[in-house]
Amino acid sequence: MTSATVTLLGAAEVSRPPAWRARLIEFLLVGGATLVLFPLAWLLRNAVGLDPAELAVGFLTFHAASVINDPHFAVTYLLFYKDARRRALGGDIAPVQRARYIAVGLLVPLALLAWAVVALATGSARTMGLMIQLMFFLVGWHYVKQGFGILTVLSARRGHRFSPTERRAILAHCFAGWAYAWASPADPGREVSEKGVIYTSIAHPPGLELAAGIAFGVSALAVLWALARRWRAERRLPPLEPLAGFFITVWLWTVYSSLDRLMVYLIPALHSVQYLYFVWLLKRNEAREAEGPPTFGKPVALRLAVLAASAVGLGWVLLRGAPALLDGALVLSASAGESTAGLGETPYLAAIYVFVNVHHYFMDSVIWRRDNPDTRYLLHSS
C-alpha cells in the first residue's frame, strides 16, 4: 500500500463520521427520536410508575414548550408577515399565491378573531368549544402535510424525485391518516375539557371510524405498491431518513398518537423540532446567500440567533404573557368574571391558544408551497 493510498484512506475515514453524524442528527430531528423515546418512556414508567412518570414528563414538556413548541408557532408569524406588502402585492409572486397570502394573512385571522370575541362576549362554552374542535380537526391535516413535506423535500435534496403516481399515493395515505385519526375512537358526543372550557364533542359514529380505518389500510397498501414498483424498475427506494420521518409522522404522531400516555406529552415537541429544523434549513441557506456578494449582509450565525430570539420572545408573549395578563385582569373584575363564567378561569388562554394554532395551520399551507419563491432555499446543498 502506497503512502498516497494511506493518505486517501485516512482522509476518507476523517470525512466519513461527519457525514454519518449529519445524517443521524437529521434522522433524529425529523422524527427518529420518537423511536428512542418510546423505550425510554417504557423504562421510566416501569421504574417509577405511571402517575409519577406522567407528572414528571408533563412538568418537563410544559416548561420546555417555552423554547420548543411556542417558538415553533411564533416563527411562523415571523416568516409569513415578513415583507407582507411584497408577498400580497408584488409582481414576482404568482397571482394565486398572492391571493393565498391575502386570504390567510387577513381574512382567516379576522374570522378567527370575530369567532373568539363572540365566544368571550357571550361566555358561550359551546361557541368556544366549536372553535376548539376545529383546531383538533385540522391538527391532523397539519401533521400529515408536514410529514409529506419531510419526505418530498429531503428526498429531493438527495436527488430522489417522486413520480406523479407516487405523490398521489403518498398524499392519499396522508389524508386517509388524517381522516382516521379524527374519526377514531368512535365518540357518541361527550363532555370534555380543554384549557378550562367544558364543551360537548361532535359525535364520531362507529361506522365512520370503520370506513376511515379501511381507507387508511387501503392507502397504506397503495404506498407500498408504489414503492415496490419503483424498486422493481430502478432498484432504489427513497432515502431512509425522510421515509422514516414520514411514516413516524403519519403513524405514530397522527393516527396512533395515544399508543403511549407519556408520548402524548412528547409528540407536540417532536413535531415542533421537526418544523424548526425546516425553518433552520430555509433561513440558513437564505442567510448564506445574503452573506456573500453583492450585498455582503450580516453573518449567518447572527441572523439565525436574532430569528431564534425573536421566536422565543414572541412565543412567550402570545402563549404565556398575554393570556396570563388578560385572564389575571378578568379574575380581578367580578363583572367580567360573570360574563365569561361558562368558559372557566382561563378563557383568554383558550381563545388565544386556539387562534394561534388554527392560524398557524393556515399560514403553513401558504409558506411551504412550491409557489413560494423562498422555498427554493430548502433545496440548496448543505
Rank of each mutant, 00 (worst) to 15 (best):
A74F: 07
R158M: 09
A65H: 05
A226M: 02
G245I: 05
L318G: 00
G10L: 13
M135R: 08
A156H: 11
L78F: 02
S333C: 13
L44Q: 04
A244S: 10
L50N: 02
L210Q: 11
R229S: 03
G105K: 08
S124W: 08
G313F: 08
A74T: 02
A111D: 00
S66Q: 08
G149C: 07
R370F: 02
A64L: 15
L37D: 07
L379F: 09
F136D: 15
G321W: 03
G245Q: 02
Y361D: 08
T340A: 12
V117E: 03
H72G: 09
S382K: 11
A74C: 10
S335N: 05
T152W: 13
L282N: 04
V197C: 00
V96T: 11
L330W: 07
A176H: 06
V197G: 03
P268H: 00
R236S: 10
V197R: 07
R303K: 12
W182I: 04
A212Y: 00
A220R: 07
A350V: 03
N372I: 14
T152P: 07
G321K: 07
P323Y: 01
V96D: 05
L237Y: 02
V192Q: 11
I150Q: 15
R45P: 03
A179C: 13
M135Y: 07
P347L: 09
P164N: 02
T127Q: 09
I150L: 12
D374Q: 14
R370A: 12
S310E: 13
R100S: 09
L78H: 08
F278I: 14
T122S: 13
E26M: 11
R86K: 12
A350R: 15
L37N: 05
L110Q: 04
V57F: 01
R190G: 06
H359E: 15
T34Y: 12
L43E: 03
A116E: 10
G159M: 15
P18I: 02
E191W: 03
A116Q: 12
T165Q: 14
N69D: 04
A64I: 12
P109A: 00
D260R: 05
V6H: 11
T165G: 15
V223Y: 01
T5C: 09
A111M: 13
G196S: 06
A183C: 14
L138A: 08
P71A: 03
T122H: 03
R158L: 10
S15H: 10
R190D: 08
L240R: 10
I267E: 10
A305W: 11
Y353R: 12
F73G: 01
S201Y: 06
R261F: 00
G344V: 09
V108R: 04
H160W: 08
V108A: 05
A88V: 10
R158V: 05
A203Y: 02
A33W: 02
G313L: 12
Y81V: 04
L107Q: 00
Y180I: 08
W231S: 02
A53S: 13
T122K: 12
V264F: 03
R261D: 06
L262A: 00
K82W: 07
Y361L: 11
V223L: 10
G189P: 11
A111G: 05
